[in-house]
Write a protein that binds this DNA or RNA. Structure first.
Length: 478
RNA sequence: GGACAGGUGGCCGAGUGGUUUAAGGCAGCGGUCUUGAAAACCGCCGUACCUUUACGGGUACCGUGAGUUCGAAUCUCACCCUGUCCGCCA
């Protein structure tokens, strides 16, 4: 969400910045909406003030038993009423239109973010660790997984559908070890507090981080069917009662009643009260912990980490990465979230990226750090670093982490503020999030980088404390 | 799922149609007194928006939304949430 005051003050700069994200100039439209909104509000406030003053006089007149004066004043107020009603509706309409327009715009890129509209313009900042050389041709993770019998794609399809996988046995253990290792690293060495947040969230939470209103189609949603049934039953009973006339007069009374109840049923299934979104990342619940708060700046930074399942519809990715478990509807991820005062987010962004990089360094996986260009960032971000891990089976670097500084863009949506000790003025916090890391992809990276010629996978040293003696993932039995 | 109670500023808490401009207290901040501290006393102490060069002025907000009224924290309706007890449950 953007600050309309800032747009008002520097419209050209705003248009130039959103142009870098491929959005057409909008400041003129927004400013005009804002002008109408303020005009309505100013007049409304004035009339309301007049009404309040007159009402008070009525009270005084009545206390003095001066009914004639009271009646006179009441007539005066009545004259204001119509205009007041119109202005209220106008003000609300302009305000909603403005908020809606503002909440659909992506964040402005930071000054040091390169221009460009897609990943071709991303800038490689550094490479860490050199890809190993293999005396054999490295396999891709799905061949390794199926060869071991520990990655069952057919079972995933049977149980759920495409883009679901069942990971088994020693590989499942290895994935769990990866998650534990990451959480331990972030909590003990980087000061993050481990959390277990809800994986289903409401509309307000999904709006706060920017999934709604624009990107609802990328999410899975659930409905509380029992609650819907209950509401529908209550509706049906009163609906039939209220439409008894239909039963005797209409040509097709039953049809009319069925139509009414069907319409209500359809409405209830989309009622936000009964709908929960499956989180696409733990960023969503963790960041929203700050929603509607005024946090004392002495408490900041807040640093949270969580290992959760993440759910994504991958609607825009048809045909991409269909083999294997690179791109799944459900995957595990350790997420990092920081809530900081506005003057600290730049340094926190570097720190968070370092935490994510440390995971790959300790696992001794080669990777490169990318600075995303303006057009390739997510809507909430003002600046993003991607970590791309080397996959010898695929012979390329693949994204495994994305660390973003969102500035105050999410904070404005969430109304998340902070206040310096002794200060009166509140400021919007800055929010940051990063994967530390995507656990499913880390499993793939370990498999491909630590594979042996016989198809077994050596366990990285740093994971050995977590695997209960297992040092090599290999096929057991026949 | 059943029964009851409740939702007021950072916290506690009064307030059932008009001097409420939300009492009072706690916490916090400033001051007087004191060598210093405590106590006592005095003062300040919610958020957002509109307006003004500024000083200032105004409006909204008492869980949310609608309604009644000249006027709503207060009355009406719906919804949300919380607590307690009972039932069921991983």
């Amino acid at each position: 969400m953007h600050d309309i005051k800032l747009i008002r003050d520097t419209p050209e700069a705003f248009d130039r910045a959103i142009a870098r994200r491929g959005v057409a100039p909008l400041s003129a439209t927004l400013i005009e909406l804002d002008r109408k909104r303020r005009a309505a509000q100013t007049e409304f406030d004035e009339l309301q003030g007049k009404r309040n003053a007159l009402s008070k006089e009525i009270g005084a007149a009545k206390a003095k038993k001066d009914e004639a004066r009271a009646a006179e004043l009441m007539a005066e107020v009545a004259a204001l009423k119509e205009r007041l009603g119109i202005l209220e509706v106008e003000q609300k309409a302009h305000e909603e239109a403005l908020t809606d327009a503002l909440s659909r715009l992506p964040n402005l890129p930071a000054d040091d973010v390169p221009n460009g509209l897609d990943e071709k313009s991303n800038v490689e900042l550094r490479r860490t660790g050199a890809p190993k050389t293999y005396s054999f041709k490295p396999k891709e993770h799905f061949d390794l997984g199926e060869g071991l019998g520990y990655m069952d794609f057919a079972a995933g399809v049977k149980l759920a559908g495409a883009r679901f996988t069942v990971v088994k046995s020693q590989l499942a253990r290895l994935e769990r070890a990866l998650g534990q290792f990451m959480l331990d690293l972030h909590t003990t060495e980087f000061g993050y507090t481990e959390m277990q947040p809800p994986m289903l969230v409401n509309d307000a939470t999904a709006f706060g981080t920017g999934q709604l209103p624009k990107f609802g189609d990328d999410l899975f949603a659930t409905i509380d069917r029992a609650a819907v049934s209950h509401a529908l039953k209550e509706f049906s009973e009163s609906f039939v009662d209220n439409n008894k006339a239909l039963l005797t007069s209409a040509a097709q009374p039953t049809l009319e009643i069925v139509k009414g109840i069907t319409a209500e049923s359809r409405r209830l299934l989309n009622d936000p009260r009964f709908r929960y979104w499956l989180i696409p990342t733990a960023e969503v619940p963790l960041t929203n912990l700050a929603r509607d708060l005024i946090i004392d700046e002495s408490e900041l930074p807040w640093r949270f980490t969580a290992l959760t399942a993440c759910f994504r519809s991958e609607a825009g990715a048809a045909g991409r990465d269909t083999r294997g478990m690179i791109r799944q509807h459900q995957f595990n991820k350790v997420e990092l979230v920081s809530i900081v005062s506005p003057d600290r987010s730049v340094e926190e962004h570097e720190r968070m990226t370092e935490a994510a990089e440390t995971v790959l360094k300790r696992l001794e996986l080669p990777f490169r750090t990318m600075l995303l260009c303006a057009g390739d960032m997510g809507g909430a971000a003002r600046k993003t670093y991607d970590l791309e891990v080397w996959l010898p089976g695929q012979d390329q670097y693949r994204e495994i982490s994305s660390c973003s500084n969102c500035g105050d863009w999410q904070a404005r949506r969430m109304n998340a503020r902070c206040r310096a000790p002794g200060e009166k003025q509140t400021r919007f916090v800055h929010t940051l999030n990063g994967s530390g890391l995507a656990v499913g992809r880390a499993l793939i990276a370990v498999m491909e980088n630590y594979q042996n010629e016989d198809g077994s996978i050596s366990v990285p040293d740093v994971l050995k404390p977590y695997t209960n003696g297992l040092t090599k993932v290999e096929k057991v039995g026949k």
